[in-house]
Design a protein around this nucleic acid. Structure first.
Lengths: 193, 193
DNA sequence: AAAGAATGAGACATTGATGTCTCATCTGAC
DNA sequence: GTCAGATGAGACATCAATGTCTCATTCTTT
């Protein structure tokens, strides 16, 4: 049984280290390994025992981010129901991992890796399809390309991640702020009464 | 007169090198000096002759970005006229320098420098005041804080910069896409006819 | 309590980017 | 054509971060 305990602990270790790494790297992509190790509450030696090196760590964080993004798309079931509700569900599902998206948005070097890039393409295309569907349903504006809508949405998710991390946006407000701004824009609607 | 020619050439050299540096650094903030020098069409030796070192170069790029941002705010005269038109003017004025804003958004280490930070605070506060004014005029939505509106606007400007640089958004469409999405949101408005 | 595993602290080599230098070449002014 | 200034190419030293190692300590399991 010692083997089972071993692997189980390793797994949670990996994840908790990755979470800590996100917190540091999303803001300072060039942070030293010392800093990441300290943030994770472990020594640099142990960090090296878990991940072969810096590149591997970065890639793992990227892969984690994309997995979580995919999970959010799944749990929001963006392929079903009307597009607006689907997007609102997506916002709720992704906002807790906004910092991870901020990391994905900033670390462009990640996309040199074909595996990472493919994962990204899949998720990005799912979002684009959602916008296309919404446009066909007459829900989303057709003057703006689905590609731009999807890109801008991701930019704002990343923006939420940064703003929350730096304390400029209350986590409590983040989903609402994101959904309202993206869907409704900054302009006050003429009073419908 | 040789002295005049000298300084004039140095000035344009500096600027053209900075422009080239933006092109590289906005996408890959960790690009080597070799790469930047090549992008600028000069040797690494000359790059060192113009800028004492990497830090200085980065800071100069940041300062250039903030100067251009301030110039855009000035030329758009965001303090005058109705807030919506002011924002549209700002969009038109800032879009040509969107890549510079993308750089400013990505290079958080810049804000360790007090001088840079102060410059940023000034411009950011001007934008925030514009949104506050628009909210008081009933033009912008009051459910979203002026701080968030200003931050999200900047995120989208940076997003435009990245998208244009990577060829995902046509420069011709960029101002329209930015203004329409930010002001009107992604939802199709109910047909007013 | 004893054995084994995991960790932290630190020393050490390695590596790659940066910063500095020299020298040959080129350009422009006269 | 000559000369001063600017540039490019490359060698070289420096330095900081990474990757590797050892060893003492702590924690876990039995």
């Amino acid at each position: 049984m010692s083997h089972l305990t071993y692997t189980r602990n390793m797994a949670t270790d990996r994840d908790s280290v990755l979470e800590a790494a996100v917190g540091v790297l999303s803001r300072r992509p060039t942070a030293h390994l010392d800093e990441i190790a300290r943030a994770a509450g472990i020594s640099r030696a142990t960090l090296h025992r878990i991940f072969p090196g810096r590149d591997a760590l970065i890639r793992e964080v990227g892969a984690l981010g994309l997995r979580k993004f995919a999970t959010a798309l799944d749990s929001a079931a963006i392929e079903t129901g009307d597009a607006q509700s689907a997007l609102r569900r997506l916002v709720d599902a992704i906002v807790p991992d906004a910092a991870l998206c901020a990391f994905l948005a900033g670390e462009n070097q990640l996309y040199d890796d074909p595996e990472i890039n493919e994962l990204w393409e899949i998720q990005d295309s799912r979002v684009r399809v959602l916008f296309l569907r919404g446009q066909q349903e007459g829900v989303f504006r057709i003057e703006l390309s689905a590609g731009w809508l999807s890109e801008a949405f991701f930019d704002l998710v990343a923006g939420v991640g940064w703003a929350v991390q730096d304390g400029r946006l209350a986590p409590r407000d983040s989903a609402y702020s994101l959904a309202e701004l993206f869907l409704g824009g900054a302009l006050r609607r003429p009073d419908p009464s």
